[in-house]
């Protein structure tokens, strides 16, 4: 199963800032289930806010992993804050900007903003969707063994690194 909730990484400034985008599409089943028509109202497809948090976790997670050359298992540990201003409908583009607030051997704290870009009015200023602050833990191998996790770096294999490559960024 593919679990990629960002489409392209626009910028990564090592240890500082990462910007990614996600196009919300009617082709995604998830927006049809959220919310499907029922006897009281027609369908109302909206991109779930939980997946907006996931998109930020992937944007910020790549930033945190990249800062240490993907040497650590970077695990999302805490959603410190998630404050939403508006919903995201199909046909719109979400832009995620994550910055590192703190990074050390034990983990990282990131701050993030999510904005909405409307392709119908690309010159308009992006409007705020959410502020999402996260914490990541660097799991070392001994801790990973205690938790019975795989020995390889299962966070940064394949999908996210491939996304970086496809975005034209060196991992």
């Amino acid at each position: 199963m593919r679990w990629i909730w960002i489409d392209r990484i626009l910028t990564i400034d090592r240890g500082k800032r990462c910007v990614a985008i996600k196009n919300v599409s009617l082709a995604e089943d998830v927006v049809h289930d959220h919310f499907a028509a029922d006897e009281h109202r027609p369908a109302w497809p909206v991109f779930p806010q939980s997946l907006i948090v996931e998109g930020m976790a992937q944007t910020a997670g790549v930033l945190v992993g990249h800062a240490r050359d993907f040497a650590h298992l970077v695990v999302l540990a805490k959603i410190s804050r998630a404050h939403f201003h508006q919903i995201a409908r199909p046909g719109l583009c979400l832009r995620y900007t994550a910055v590192i607030d703190r990074l050390d051997d034990s983990g990282a704290a990131t701050k993030g903003t999510v904005e909405l870009i409307d392709p119908a009015d690309p010159a308009a200023a992006p409007s705020p969707v959410a502020e999402i602050d996260l914490m990541f833990s660097h799991l070392d191998q001994s801790r990973a063994a205690l938790l019975d996790l795989p020995k390889h770096n299962f966070i940064f294999t394949g999908q996210l690194l491939e996304l970086m490559r496809q975005s034209g960024l060196p991992a």
Partner: peptide
């Protein structure tokens, strides 16, 4: 447990101090 790391980060910022791991 993760909250302790969060608390350390926030204390460092609030008091402009350095707290080692």
């Amino acid at each position: 447990s993760i909250d302790f790391l969060d608390i350390v980060f926030r204390l460092e910022k609030a008091f402009t101090i350095k707290i080692d791991q």
